[in-house]
Design a protein around this nucleic acid. Structure first.
Lengths: 231, 231
DNA sequence: GTCACTAGAATATGATCAAATTATCCAGTG
DNA sequence: CACTGGATAATTTGATCATATTCTAGTGAC
């Protein structure tokens, strides 16, 4: 009678057809991406099983994936934490995005359908609303989704994957910096970019995105530089 | 008497202090990197537990990590396989490496110690020996280690990580192409690059690496293009 | 300040359930 | 009578959990 007890075994306590480790991965990724986890904060398996109400195995696998993507960091002694980026690290990310984002924008401009342009415009308007309302969390998520949609349009899965990995790396630091400075003087070259895309002027669109990236990331770099000045 | 049987529970049947999942990860990564796994080949968890003589959990985690890095691919229906790259995929990788590798070489030239240069020279000589001997596997491994060491010298962990991820993606395809063409007309601009590094001519070194990358990767792209000609 | 001990967290295993692929069989047709 | 097509059964493989084991770090005593 107890031999066939409800030991469970598998998934889908929710309604999705997705495996649990996939669901947990996405939840944890969003936690990192939108700054719900602070840089330097330890990430424990048991803490996440409690926080996300999940089993140990799915949480383990999600942590492994995020670690491989650079969103989390092995601390040597089997501990995992959210990485603390140095100013040099940010410089690397700036360099990479300075090349990746314009290139993807170039391709996106050539391929974007009218629906795509409408979707981007709508996202940007919601983004503006979040800024004026001072809703930091919404800003971070919408800004990500704006760029993410741009990547998707570009139809270059590998390059887009690289770019997304960079977002995972600077997400926590971005949150800290924005939280420190408020949502006022945030960069928004999106309008210029959208105008250029509508005109199918790929070069101008790429240039606008490049400025958007540099402006935003330089603020992060400078903030990081002043908060940990000496080595 | 059997209750306390050798259920084991943990690691270190070898001698290393590394956790099993780390060891398995490296083994599986090398399998992908050096073409021991063919593109399209299914990767089963139970197959690997048998092949690598490991438990299920470490194998699972290794697969998750490699999947996150793009070395393996979820096939939707919970199956995992080695990715089959299209010519477009290779084009993306060429673009990225065309930017990444020269940049890293630039930095490496500025930072390389004499020991580093000696090590690179030694690696390249062993590489030449492998080519003349026609030892494909050794060529693949040494070529990787040559570039990897270059990345390490550059002292840019994030950019280096991106570059290594690209190697994982084209490793299996590279093996197929090289196996088809033999080890004769393989690119080797390493000599020019090393001369430039010795002279601390970073620009020339970067240019040499760029040609090396383009030559090698273009062969892969063209091979991919002819083997799957239609859209 | 060093060392032993303890508490807590991570690693790894095997058992068990679920799903997907493969193999098998039967019916209907040329 | 041989052959194709579809449905069902069997096997293989993946997903998840509970638990045992081991390592790390923190605590207190000497």
């Amino acid at each position: 009678m107890n031999k066939s007890a409800k030991i469970s075994g598998q998934q889908d306590s929710g309604r999705t057809g997705l495996p649990a480790h996939e669901v947990i991965y996405r939840q944890l990724r969003d936690l990192v991406l939108f700054g719900d986890l602070a840089p330097g904060q330890p990430v424990t398996i048991q803490g996440l099983t409690a926080r996300l109400d999940a089993g140990m195995t799915p949480v383990r696998e999600a942590i492994r994936r995020l670690t491989a993507e650079g969103a989390l960091e092995f601390q040597g002694n089997r501990r995992v934490c959210v990485p603390l980026l140095s100013a040099d690290n940010i410089s690397e990310i700036i360099l990479a995005r300075q090349w990746l984002d314009p290139h993807l924008t170039l391709r996106a401009t050539e391929r974007a359908s009218l629906e795509d342009l409408e979707r981007l415009t709508a996202l940007d308007e919601t983004l503006d609303a979040a800024i004026t309302k001072g809703d930091l969390r919404a800003y971070l998520e919408l800004n990500y989704r704006f760029h993410k949609h741009l990547y998707d349009i570009a139809d270059a899965p590998i390059l887009a994957n690289l770019a997304e990995g960079l977002w995972l790396r600077f997400g926590p630091s971005l949150r800290v910096v924005c939280g420190r400075m408020g949502t006022q003087n945030l960069p928004d070259k999106h309008k210029d970019m959208l105008d250029a895309m509508h005109a199918r002027d790929a070069e101008s669109a790429a240039r606008a995105i490049r400025e958007d990236v540099i402006q935003g990331m330089e603020q992060v770099r400078q903030s990081l530089e002043s908060s940990s000045p000496a080595h």
